[in-house]
Measured scan of single mutants.
Amino acid sequence: MAAGGDHGSPDSYRSPLASRYASPEMCFVFSDRYKFRTWRQLWLWLAEAEQTLGLPITDEQIQEMKSNLENIDFKMAAEEEKRLRHDVMAHVHTFGHCCPKAAGIIHLGATSCYVGDNTDLIILRNALDLLLPKLARVISRLADFAKERASLPTLGFTHFQPAQLTTVGKRCCLWIQDLCMDLQNLKRVRDDLRFRGVKGTTGTQASFLQLFEGDDHKVEQLDKMVTEKAGFKRAFIITGQTYTRKVDIEVLSVLASLGASVHKICTDIRLLANLKEMEEPFEKQQIGSSAMPYKRNPMRSERCCSLARHLMTLVMDPLQTASVQWFERTLDDSANRRICLAEAFLTADTILNTLQNISEGLVVYPKVIERRIRQELPFMATENIIMAMVKAGGSRQDCHEKIRVLSQQAASVVKQEGGDNDLIERIQVDAYFSPIHSQLDHLLDPSSFTGRASQQVQRFLEEEVYPLLKPYESVMKVKAELCL
């Protein structure tokens, strides 16, 4: 049975990233139509530049190519590739079939990587351009969430054990800070992308030097003109047959890092959902379990974690691919890159769409948070109580021993009897502590235990987050809708 299948058929496997999760716009960027249309555009740009620099290419040939950029006979191309065992030459023939007058000058002087690699770089750039505003929107939604809850005390956790208090907004800023680093890295790697350009079979530009009869300047002009037509500021000066596969490492490393950030955020949300302090959106008709109707599973956060793990592992592909590119190139890269580049971007696209949807509907339960604080705060307040007693004339050592005994009794009630923490009640009825009984409410005010959390939130948002989001103001209103 021949390899390949009808990918629109229910009898043929289709990647869930495309069929179930990723956005239509990201799927289109990695589609065959987008790819092969870009090949034709690159052939047109090459012909236009070659004509401008004096090669015998007519206006009629150029116009014929322009008129057929979208006229792609995919069936013919597939048949040609089956016959020739070469995808680029299959599309040269297919393009030439609908451009008979231009057929002889299509791909003039070029090698397969002229269309293959340059198209990949265009796709990487455009895919990054799709991700950047999506990530900015996630940051914006979380920034709104953090600002609104900047002063809401909550129990902090280290080692997932109760620690000092923080605020809900401050905790959210930990998430935002990681995503801001990801946004900066995505922008950097996007701006650092260079075009492969017009380089020939081993990167020496020998074929173009021959076409222009040894004119170095025209060869350099050709490279520059096509690079500018493709919208790049610069091209690699040095290439082998391909652009260095280190570029793929750079791009997928940034995406993998984004995956790590999203995994951490969504894990926190899942843990908070278990504590009943916070939940992701839950639709009115949504079913959490087929057997347990009360369940409210954090399905979206779980999906993000599941896909983020996949995204983090994909960076190993370009690392290994770059390491086995012998001399000017081997074909070890080809099949692998067809999979890992598309999957990385479709996965990143999915987790950003999902995280935006989550961040637009996060639900906080202040009463649950308050109750958990009441359970733990008495123990945390013991040092403040000791200091207040010393100020009232008591002995630190005597007070410490009193607190120690009462704390152990209260802990026994919590752990052995399943009761509430009654340390404060014990202190309130103990005559030894009568000098500070009137101060206990103040000493137990949760806001006095959150330090500068709310001020940190305000400063972080104003100095770091809002300036970073400013270039994306025009796209901030787009909502994230999930079908599944």
Rank of each mutant, 00 (worst) to 15 (best):
F232S: 04
R338G: 04
G96E: 09
L211G: 01
F195L: 09
T202I: 07
K66L: 10
Q458R: 10
V115L: 13
H263Y: 05
K170L: 06
R190A: 08
V247D: 07
F449T: 02
I106A: 05
D178Y: 07
F28C: 08
C180N: 10
A260R: 03
T267H: 11
V88P: 04
G259H: 05
K218D: 07
S334Y: 04
H437M: 06
E70V: 13
R141V: 15
V414R: 04
N185D: 05
K224W: 14
E228P: 01
S261N: 03
Y21L: 00
L121K: 08
G393H: 04
G8Y: 15
K470Y: 14
K284Q: 14
R83V: 10
V138F: 15
D216W: 10
M76W: 13
L307W: 04
Q397C: 06
K479G: 15
L165W: 00
G259Y: 01
N185E: 05
S359E: 08
W43Q: 06
R270P: 08
A480T: 15
D422Q: 07
G231W: 04
K170Q: 04
I427M: 13
E302R: 06
N336F: 02
E81W: 00
L55Q: 14
D117S: 01
R190F: 09
V29Q: 11
C27Q: 07
L406E: 06
E60I: 12
E80D: 14
L174H: 11
I237K: 10
D182T: 04
H400W: 03
E280V: 01
T204H: 05
N274R: 04
K199G: 01
L209A: 10
C266I: 06
I139F: 06
M312H: 04
E79L: 12
C98I: 12
V189E: 08
L69F: 11
G203S: 01
S306Q: 01
E25V: 10
E481G: 15
M389L: 07
C483A: 15
H107W: 00
H442F: 13
R337S: 01
G231V: 05
H310R: 13
T313D: 02
G8I: 15
L341M: 11
R338V: 01
T119V: 13
F157M: 08
Y365M: 10
H263W: 07
I339H: 12
G240R: 01
L482Q: 14
A163G: 14
L443Q: 04
R452P: 02
E343P: 10
S323H: 08
A410I: 05
L482N: 05
L461F: 06
V115K: 00
K101M: 11
L252H: 11
A146P: 03
G156T: 03
F157H: 09
D73V: 05
Q416N: 10
M387G: 15
Y13M: 13
F212G: 05
K246A: 05
L255H: 14
V390G: 04
V92W: 01
F95C: 02
S334H: 07
S323R: 04
N357Y: 06
R149D: 04
D223Y: 00
